[in-house]
Each structure stands twice: as structure tokens, then as C-alpha cells.
């Protein structure tokens, strides 16, 4: 009972830092999805060079552990910027480095998910769109994209949950997210109540991923329900 009370207490102390985690995650998801879309488009493009670049990028990124990516970006980018553009970015908010690292990491699996979802929609859908006079873009946007979206959704949600977990490494370059906060709490208690603190942290991650799963199920259900009620 005492433990439960402690865990609840730690939850209260950790939760304020959730902002950082959410900002980092949401930014990386949005930017990573856009980059992933670009990569998927490159992979399907007519240009052999673009296809190769996209394939190599995806295979390298997929093999890179997140902690290494975060360090490479954090230590490497300032050197790159000062070397190439003579711009000093060492003073940047460290959160930006994490967002960039996670964006790069997220873009690779997402591009694969988008590509395979796109390929799952038959070529005939595009041709039918063209034959009723719509442009390729109109057909893509109104016919192909909605169908690919439903196919991609479950895998996309999985990748989001992975990203969330990889984001737990944010503390390694000194950003005060929930993980860093937990470490501080443990340190303040001279190493005491460590497992209760981290349990509280794990609980938070669990609830977030539950919420993501629930959200996906709701979206899927609404798609199915729409079909049922209309046809009934």
C-alpha cells in the first residue's frame, strides 16, 4: 500500500515534464512523416539516382541505434554547421537536436510503411480516376491516399510507439524530460525509492501507448462503421 502511495506521488512529480516528451514526440512524428513521404516518393520516382539515395538512406538509418543517432546529431551537427555555413549552433536548445535525430530515425520505417501501403492500392484506381477526368494529383489525394491511409494506420501506430520509447533517450544529452526528471527524483532521495520512481515512469509510457492504440482502433472503427450504417 505504501508503494502504491509512493508511485502515485512520483506520478505527480513526473507528469509536469510530460510536455517535453510530447513536444519532442509530436514534432518528430510530423517532421518524420513528411520526410518519410518524400523518401517514399523518391523510392517510387523515375530517377534512378533518387531511388538509390532513398534506399541507401533507409537501410543505413534502420540499422542505426537511436542513442548513436542522437549523439551523432548532437556532436556532429554543430561541427558541420560551423564548417560549412560558419554558423554556430552549439547554443541551440538541446531539444532541437533530439527532434532532428528522432525525425531521421522515424522517417525510415515510415517511408517503408507509406510505400507498401501505396503499393497495396491497385494501379486501376489511378487509371479510373484519370478516365473520369480527374488529374493525377486529384486522384491521388481523393482516391489513393484515403485507401493507403487505412492500410498504413496499424503499422504507423507501431512506429509511433517505438519513437516514443526511443525518445526516452532524450535525457542523454541533458534535456530535462520525464526520464531526466525521474533520475533527479532518485538522486534527491539519495538513491532511494528508485524502483517506485521508474515504475511510475513506465506507467506513464504505458498509458500513452494505450491511448495511441485506442485512437487507432477508433479511427478504424469509424471507417468500418461508416460503411455499415450507410449500406444498411
Amino acid at each position: 500500500m505504501e508503494n502504491v502511495r509512493l508511485i502515485i506521488n512520483f506520478l505527480g512529480q513526473l507528469l509536469p515534464a510530460i510536455n517535453i516528451t510530447l513536444v519532442v514526440s509530436v514534432s518528430s512524428i510530423i517532421l518524420g512523416s513528411l520526410l518519410g513521404l518524400g523518401l517514399a516518393a523518391a523510392k517510387k520516382s523515375e530517377s534512378a539516382i533518387l531511388r538509390v539515395i532513398s534506399a541507401v538512406y533507409v537501410s543505413v538509418i534502420r540499422a542505426t541505434p537511436s542513442i548513436i543517432m542522437i549523439f551523432v546529431v548532437y556532436y556532429g551537427m554543430p561541427l558541420l554547421f560551423s564548417g560549412w555555413f560558419h554558423v554556430n549552433i552549439e547554443g541551440w536548445n538541446r531539444m532541437y537536436f533530439v527532434i532532428i535525430a528522432l525525425t531521421l530515425l522515424f522517417s525510415a520505417p515510415v517511408s517503408e510503411i507509406m510505400r507498401s501501403a501505396y503499393e497495396s492500392v491497385s494501379k486501376g484506381q489511378m487509371e479510373a480516376g484519370l478516365m473520369v477526368g480527374m488529374t493525377p494529383f486529384q486522384t491521388f489525394y481523393r482516391i489513393l491516399l484515403p485507401q493507403a491511409f487505412v492500410v498504413a494506420l496499424p503499422n504507423f501506430a507501431n512506429s509511433v510507439i517505438n519513437l516514443l520509447k526511443e525518445g526516452a533517450l532524450t535525457f542523454t544529452i541533458g534535456v530535462v524530460d520525464m526520464v531526466a526528471k525521474a533520475q533527479m527524483i532518485v538522486a534527491n532521495n539519495s538513491g532511494g525509492y528508485a524502483w517506485q520512481t521508474y515504475c511510475a515512469l513506465a506507467l506513464i509510457y504505458w498509458v500513452i501507448s494505450l491511448a495511441i492504440d485506442k485512437g487507432v482502433t477508433l479511427v478504424e472503427k469509424s471507417y468500418q462503421a461508416k460503411r455499415k450504417t450507410i449500406a444498411a
Binding site: S122, G124, Q125, E127, A128, G129, V132, G133, M134, T135, Q138, R142, I143, P146, Q147, I230, A231
Partner: peptide, 22 residues
Amino acid sequence: NYNLFNNKTALQNITEGLIVAR
């Protein structure tokens, strides 16, 4: 093989081109 728009109803399959293209 028909190629109806799978994400549209029978009616929407027909209105799509009229509304969007025409």
C-alpha cells in the same frame, strides 16, 4: 475488372468525376 473507387459508394463513384473534374 471494374476499377470502382473502393473508398466511395456507388453514388459517390459516379459523382466524383462530375464534382471534381467537371
